[in-house]
Design a protein around this nucleic acid. Sequence first.
DNA 1: CATGAATGAGGATTCATTCAT
DNA 2: TATGAATGAATCCTCATTCAT
Lengths: 209, 209, 209, 209
Amino acid sequence: MPKRTREKYRVIIEAAIRVIADNGYHGSQVSKIAREAGVAEGTIYLYFENKEDILISIFRNKLGEFIAAAPQKLNGSENPFEQLAYLIYLHFYRLENNPKLAHVLQIELRQSEKSIRKGIAEVIKEYYRLIENIVVDGIKRGYFRPDLDPKITRKIIFGSMDEVATCWVLSTHHYDLLTLTEQVYEALARSLSREEDYTPFPPGLRPVQ
Amino acid sequence: MPKRTREKYRVIIEAAIRVIADNGYHGSQVSKIAREAGVAEGTIYLYFENKEDILISIFRNKLGEFIAAAPQKLNGSENPFEQLAYLIYLHFYRLENNPKLAHVLQIELRQSEKSIRKGIAEVIKEYYRLIENIVVDGIKRGYFRPDLDPKITRKIIFGSMDEVATCWVLSTHHYDLLTLTEQVYEALARSLSREEDYTPFPPGLRPVQ
Amino acid sequence: MPKRTREKYRVIIEAAIRVIADNGYHGSQVSKIAREAGVAEGTIYLYFENKEDILISIFRNKLGEFIAAAPQKLNGSENPFEQLAYLIYLHFYRLENNPKLAHVLQIELRQSEKSIRKGIAEVIKEYYRLIENIVVDGIKRGYFRPDLDPKITRKIIFGSMDEVATCWVLSTHHYDLLTLTEQVYEALARSLSREEDYTPFPPGLRPVQ
Amino acid sequence: MPKRTREKYRVIIEAAIRVIADNGYHGSQVSKIAREAGVAEGTIYLYFENKEDILISIFRNKLGEFIAAAPQKLNGSENPFEQLAYLIYLHFYRLENNPKLAHVLQIELRQSEKSIRKGIAEVIKEYYRLIENIVVDGIKRGYFRPDLDPKITRKIIFGSMDEVATCWVLSTHHYDLLTLTEQVYEALARSLSREEDYTPFPPGLRPVQ
DNA sequence: CATGAATGAGGATTCATTCAT
DNA sequence: TATGAATGAATCCTCATTCAT
């Protein structure tokens, strides 16, 4: 069994992200990843079950960091609207600061085989739950509309962020993703809000010009 | 391409949808598609450049029908809110009534090579424009909030519908997609509306129980 | 059975020469030849057994003309040395005046399958015999060295002309093939001659400057 | 290409010669060559770019040995006539002692695609130069006729040897190639010689009966 | 732990030829 | 005669994975 904590494990993951971002999923042979990582081909198989496992591991690792970091930050705020704003901010911030990873997550990972997507699905559920928790919490505490369906709402939140992110990646970063945070927030917040008590975007999350 | 016979072209497209929905893109050998269509393998290449071209053609054809039908129906209504409702309704209606096509469009098509996605991108722009037109029109005519960015709004609308649709397909249709129309509409309509004049969901689009 | 005398038969042959010269043997699909000839693909098979038959027919036809014309001209001279000079002259003259045919004969025809070469071999024997007759005749009549082996001598004569012609074609005609006639003649004539009575090149065959 | 093993490279080359000689180039599937060589199909591609590369490598290797060995032997003699005699002798000797290789070199290699012939052309230039050097040297040192054109002469020498060799191969070796050395030499030597000082064939090169 | 040479299954595509019209 | 749509056999090459060292 591969030891997922070891240095070489991370080296291979990082090499794979670079290779896949540069060559696309189908252009990323194991041999190429091995070369980039500076290890022998066979070594890859000491740390990963197979090629798919590399891909899933990228996702698990990076989304893992994503989720691990999020709650602490989100819990910094009592207000679910602020939590939503922060969620979007973090989502875009992570991607903007890792363009290669962003490309892999938004584009390459999607074009993988059924079995890979299955592995990914398990990981992403975690993230889904995070979003749903915000929604449920917001409803319970009277911040969000009581008639919201948390599952649908989660899909709208995630779908909106995801589509905006994908378009940004496909535009090859010709514009700034983070500046869109506010607009996406506004749209989503209005959907969630009970008319009268709509909370405007937290000025602290506005990108510094 | 042989001159007279558009017929065989359609036969192959429909066969390909069935085969790809059942086996996934990478599990759909050209030979399998040919067998399903009842033609020889070589015949495929009289009507399509290559295997990728089949996939792009599925998209072009089906999205083509989608877009071709949409404007007439949308224009049936003067009200941009109603148009939005109808857009979501049509989007979900089409997918729900073609489960195999839905699978191909939401799942298999995404895992294709760069060149395929490029071919698709050209076609989908048309659909994007359709959505943007509703937004722009709604703003201009004072129905939607004047501070909306049409591009971002389009991404939120499309992203929301797309995510809801993908989750529905991945759930292997255990629930009814059309019944979600209203909730998606509500969320999006609230984002678009100038508070006071929010237009409720047109009752005529509610699925008959 | 194809009627080898008909107009369309010649049209196809000439079209094939152009296509093969331009695209090489392996790049000359039957469909391409049909298009160039202005007939349907199926029509080809009314005049030729199969694709190979086209190639062999090119050779048979063109070498046929070659041989048919030669004897009359060669017999115009009583002197075997003059006949040799004329042979070389004609060989080069034909090629120089049909660059596309030259390319097909010297290059493309050689890269054909065993069965084609077999068909060609039968035709070329005729030409071999023509050359050998000159040699045998020259020996018998005391012009050429009596110790010559006609078969070997024929190979040296043909091999020399052929190599010179092939190099000329591969050079893409950057120089004039006909001007080499005299030098090739000189070399071969010396080989054949009984020292004292070596016959110099007939001045009438020298290209006009 | 794997680092240590030149061994397997040679094994494949030799297997390819046997297979191609027996089946022709187009009848020699890579799988057949692999089986004959006792390696997996994929292994072929560790040592060769593609199927064409095998053919070119055969030529490069064998002509390489040819040329590498020649100069030393040729330089054993001061006399250009003797060098010519030795050149022909070596040319025929090599072919006669490798009938399968002879078949591949004289027949199969000629029917290859443009790209193969291009690869071969580069190698054969070396051999051409070798022949031309003998000619130039012979002229300079007063052995050969001063009015010879080295390029044309080279073509006549090579063309003669080549045609004789090809006919021998096509005859399926029903006669002895080496015994023709003297006659080819005689013919070529007469072409080269300044009448009076023609050098007869070196008796040492006569095949022992 | 690490290497990298060896494996071999798997599939899109071409194109000469046929034959119903 | 002429057509051209339909056929389907035939094969090179890639690349994930293994295993002897």
